[in-house]
């Protein structure tokens, strides 16, 4: 029935939107990074639900199962998770340096201090 067929994708879309909203609207830099994380994780969920075959077990070849889910999205998402954590680590390092030089992590303060000097 329709709900089970596309429920996954709708949740993915809603998560994506919450993530994007956080990145755009929230002024705090750390909140933006969390938003970015939520946004990226939603894409991972989308890829994995694309790869799922009902009744298919984990793609580890064994005598027990015959139907497997699609291994390719899993590989892609492994790389994407690594990319996600790499970006988060770099972003947090940037936030620390911004905190040291600007004294605040609020976008508002940074813009005002930038325009002053």
């Amino acid at each position: 029935m329709l709900l089970s067929a596309l429920y996954n994708y709708w949740v993915v879309v809603l998560l994506m939107m919450t993530g994007l909203y956080m990145v755009i609207a929230q002024g705090n830099l750390i909140k933006k990074i969390i938003g970015l994380n939520v946004f990226q994780t939603s894409v991972f969920i989308f890829y994995i639900s694309v790869g799922k075959v009902t009744g298919g077990s984990a793609p580890i070849l064994s005598q027990l199962a015959t139907v497997y889910s699609n291994p390719l999205p899993h590989v892609l998402i492994l790389t994407a998770i690594v990319v996600g954590i790499a970006t988060t680590a770099l972003a947090l390092a940037l936030v620390l340096r911004i905190r040291q030089s600007y004294g605040s992590v609020e976008e508002q303060d940074i813009l005002t201090r930038d325009s002053q000097c």
């Binding site: 969390i34 994995i48 639900s49 984990a58 793609p59 899993h74 492994l78 954590i85 988060t88």
Partner: peptide, 27 residues
């Protein structure tokens, strides 16, 4: 755990290690 239920075991393992481990730690 969602990845786990989807059968993506490797991805679940990584997401647990990163999503629940490293990134909250750094944050």
């Amino acid at each position: 755990s969602f990845f786990m239920s989807m059968g993506a075991v490797d991805v679940a393992f990584t997401e647990a290690a990163v999503g629940a481990g490293i990134s909250p730690l750094l944050m």
